[in-house]
Design a binder for these strands. Sequence first.
DNA 1: GCCCATTTGTCGGATATCCACAATAGCCCT
DNA 2: AGGGCTATTGTGGATATCCGACAAATGGGC
Lengths: 201, 201
Amino acid sequence: MSVDHVFIVDDDEAIRDALSWLFQSRGVAVKSYDSAEAFLKEWRPGQSGCLLLDIRMSGMSGLDLFDRLRDVSSSLPVIFLTGHGDVPMAVSALKKGAMDFVEKPFNDNELVDRVIEALALSAQRREREADTADIAGRLAALTARERQVMDLVLAGKLNKVIADDLGITMRTVEVHRAHVFEKMGVKTAVELAQLLSNYRL
Amino acid sequence: MSVDHVFIVDDDEAIRDALSWLFQSRGVAVKSYDSAEAFLKEWRPGQSGCLLLDIRMSGMSGLDLFDRLRDVSSSLPVIFLTGHGDVPMAVSALKKGAMDFVEKPFNDNELVDRVIEALALSAQRREREADTADIAGRLAALTARERQVMDLVLAGKLNKVIADDLGITMRTVEVHRAHVFEKMGVKTAVELAQLLSNYRL
DNA sequence: GCCCATTTGTCGGATATCCACAATAGCCCT
DNA sequence: AGGGCTATTGTGGATATCCGACAAATGGGC
């Protein structure tokens, strides 16, 4: 099983070393990068962990990298580190979904706490995404007709009504309905509703 | 129908006047207060609108008022205004759920846009809360036994199994089930599941 | 005593579930 | 072209479940 890493992206070697030492001494695995580009080269969506991101860097800035990650719909929690941040920058980053925005020099213990929080969040998100992907996969296995029937079942309609709506026999509806239940791994319409309600959004 | 107001809380009369003029000229209703205490005296939970809150005030500070509103679980969106804010303060406010954190001097158009966003959010929250309260009310009307039966129904169990679990007759379960459906205003178990899935959390 | 919650019962119709058997159409692969 | 597979649709019948109306007994609280 892959351990969740803290990804450190900072062009200042002294900072990288200090952060690496800090987290490794607390038993948290670390990977360091000296630029946003270097991180992007290794990063694969789906990896979970926590990104510690310096804002001011030569080349791609931390904010640019953040936007890029949002584009690929990464759910990686991001904590910004900055030496010369201002209020509008912090507000903008947080409103865009950053987990935190910390000024250097930072308090070691607080930072570690935030990172551990973020790692927990990331693991939780990953789990949730795995569930969602699982559901999505099962939904994709449904045929178009089965999907239609399922939607009507979830609308609380009776098989007879569904048959009318689709212009087919009740018996056919029953077959589709049974297939939907089988493919989705449930035994009743209520279970199906519960399953989808938790993961549709 | 009550119009959504912008509530301005600032101890600087010049700011209050400027903001009042700004919003009234854009057709947004305004109520001004010269202190957090004055606002709290008039404020009733459930009112929707948007709070424009100065941080530095004599007496109760804006942050104190914000915390107080959170305690009474107010869903009023809050936009902080500040002349001398720093990054940690902004970060803290946003992480606690403030909608925005704006430094003076502010851009009129941007502020108005944010406020209009906030008013929309507030209206949406209010609607959602009304729905939730409605559901909560119906749930409260259920007897203990009906609630038990409902939970088992939502677990996808058959009446026969529910009867076994509760040590009562199937017929009795049917009666409770019918009462639950009637009180919750639904006709099928699936509708019940849909209803609760959207408002339970 | 009255109201309500809880429990139980019967009867019958409407619905849903399950199974066996069967047919048509479209697809991929050989 | 032929064979296999899936999706789709159909029939008939047996069984289980759900639902509504009518009825009634018990116990608690006002």
